[in-house]
């Protein structure tokens, strides 16, 4: 990939103010196509706010979001999903009373080709599309290893699998950019290991650009090529995992000022 191709996702001077509180200030981000990019920072740094801005839940006070060069600032979440950004949520938001399969099928709804009248009259186009959707959804469930549970209610799944289902549902919208909000939160080491493999597999297979928020350092350092570190709504570092690990401001932000001194001493 050459340097001058259009980046998949760009945030330009994005600022988000809630009344007097500036949650994110002058945030800049360039995620190249096909990248696996990390966004890290201590609690309350503004990571999820950035996700909410990119996915259209929040409208930024200033700045612009560009998807492959197109300005998508201020579009509604469903329009942004249609343009090709899908996300998962930090606190899982599945359709609890729907089956696992139906959860994924909802993700396929926005690329439907059949209109309401055709669906109500059960015309052949509708039947064909339903069959096609079911097949795609089953494939996606296989991808994340949930095909045996397709008839279960989503709330009957254990926590780790609910996170996988959220990823499958997001992939069903055929995204160009996938936003994962703390996918490893609450997972045990074995589950985390599997998840890391899943995320890298997904990128290979679907050719999707992934932006990842994560607390689990092992995950970010293990799979992300580059990352941006946020603290108190401001970017304090940007670079490869190795660069970030050596960055003093990052260490300070995560461990506090005293720790840096201690580190230097040892």
């Amino acid at each position: 990939m050459s340097k001058n191709t259009v980046p998949a996702l760009v945030c330009e001077n994005v600022t988000m103010k809630f009344g007097g509180l500036t949650a994110v200030s002058d945030f800049n981000l360039r995620v190249p196509e096909g990248a696996l990019y990390g966004l890290i920072g201590p609690n309350g740094a503004g990571k999820t706010t950035v996700f909410n801005i990119v996915s259209g839940v929040l409208r930024p006070s200033a700045g612009a979001i560009k998807l492959f060069g197109d300005d998508i600032t201020g579009l509604s979440p469903d329009r942004i999903a249609y343009r090709g950004i899908a996300r998962t949520f930090q606190n899982i938001r599945l359709f609890q009373n729907l089956t696992v399969l139906d959860n994924v099928l909802v993700g396929l709804h926005l690329r439907r080709e059949v209109n309401l009248a055709q669906a109500l009259l059960a015309l052949p186009q509708h039947r064909a599309e339903e069959a096609r959707m079911a097949q795609t959804a089953t494939q996606l469930l296989e991808e994340v290893g949930l095909d045996d549970f397709s008839d279960y209610r989503a709330n009957a799944l254990p926590y780790g699998q609910q996170r996988r289902l959220e990823i499958a549902r997001a992939l069903a919208t055929k995204p160009k950019v996938l936003l994962l909000d703390e996918p490893a939160a609450g997972m045990n080491p074995a589950e985390t290991e599997n998840l890391m493999r899943l995320i890298t597999d997904i990128r290979e297979e679907f050719g999707v650009t992934i932006l990842l928020i994560e607390h689990e350092m092992k995950v970010v350092m293990g799979i992300c090529e580059r990352m941006t570190v946020l603290d108190h709504g401001e970017i304090i570092a940007e670079g490869t995992p190795a660069e970030i690990q050596r960055n003093e401001r990052v260490i300070k932000a995560y461990l506090g000022g005293g720790a840096v001194v201690g580190n230097k001493g040892s």
Partner: peptide, 14 residues
């Protein structure tokens, strides 16, 4: 039904 279960997630799914 997705809207019933979670409006925010439904909107995020398009």
């Amino acid at each position: 039904k997705a809207i019933r279960d979670d409006e925010i997630a439904a909107e995020a799914m398009g």
